[in-house]
Computed example of a mutant assay.
Amino acid sequence: MNQSTVIDFLRHGEARGGSYYRGTTDDPLTERGWHQMYRQCGEGQWDAVISSPLRRCRSFAAVWCEQQQLQLSIEPAWSEIDFGDWEGQSAEQISSQWPDALMAFYQDPENFSPPNAESYSRFADRVRQGWENLLAAHAGQRVLVVTHAGVIRALFAEVFDMPVAKTFHIDLPHACLTRFTSFDDGDSRFVQLNFHKPG
């Protein structure tokens, strides 16, 4: 039987601290960030909600689940990539300390990692496993995953076999909502992008 699973990936809203590389840096949402996420979710109805453990995702997901009387699952697989020594650094600071490093990362993230960072291959592996686990556990359901820009880009690469560097051309503003539908018949899988809606 062909079974469809609808998965909505919501990037977190604006976080405190301004614009810098905040992979695992655990900043809370700004008031604007909360509003962005509420506005994006609207009257959305899901059977299950899963969140990254980082506060900028988890805090909203917990409140939303309480209001909707849903149980929240926290999954480390949906955490952002760890930028290592780039954590908390702006693009200008990184370019000053590591000239040409940002360009190298964006051109070939699979072979260039920031100092002391999580490798892209390890990051992609855990996102891939999170995706497979989600589809196995929530087959036939509508699922909301509250997560990060890097995770959603990694899914584009995984699901549509895109070159990783090309995924950086996908705009993922705060509270962007991306919907995939996975059709499974037991032997094969077809995944469709339904929409990619900026916040």
Rank of each mutant, 00 (worst) to 15 (best):
Q89R: 13
F160E: 01
R189P: 08
V145F: 01
I81E: 07
Q40D: 02
H148M: 09
D100E: 15
V191P: 00
A48T: 13
A77T: 09
Q89K: 14
R55C: 06
A137E: 15
L193I: 01
R58I: 00
D184Q: 06
D185E: 03
T30I: 12
S19N: 12
D47V: 00
A62S: 13
V145C: 03
S182R: 05
A137M: 06
L29S: 01
A154Q: 03
S121T: 13
Q129I: 04
Q69T: 13
D8V: 01
R39Q: 08
A101N: 04
V145Q: 07
E43N: 13
Q192K: 07
D85H: 12
N2P: 10
L155M: 06
F183Y: 09
I7T: 06
Y106F: 15
G150F: 01
F123G: 11
P109M: 11
E43P: 04
W131H: 08
S90N: 09
G13I: 10
E132L: 06
F156S: 08
K197A: 05
S4T: 07
P163Q: 08
R39S: 15
A91V: 06
S90L: 14
I152T: 01
S4H: 08
K197V: 09
T147H: 05
S188Q: 15
H138A: 09
R22T: 06
G88H: 03
S4R: 14
A117T: 14
N111L: 13
Q68F: 06
F123S: 12
A91Q: 08
H169N: 11
G42N: 10
Y38F: 05
W78H: 01
T25D: 05
L135V: 08
M1I: 13
R56T: 04
P114N: 02
R39G: 11
H138V: 05
T25I: 12
L193C: 05
Q67I: 00
C57I: 14
P163L: 01
P28I: 04
F60Q: 02
N2Q: 08
R58Q: 10
Q107T: 10
R11M: 04
Q97M: 11
I81Q: 11
A136D: 13
E43G: 14
V145M: 00
A15K: 08
F156A: 01
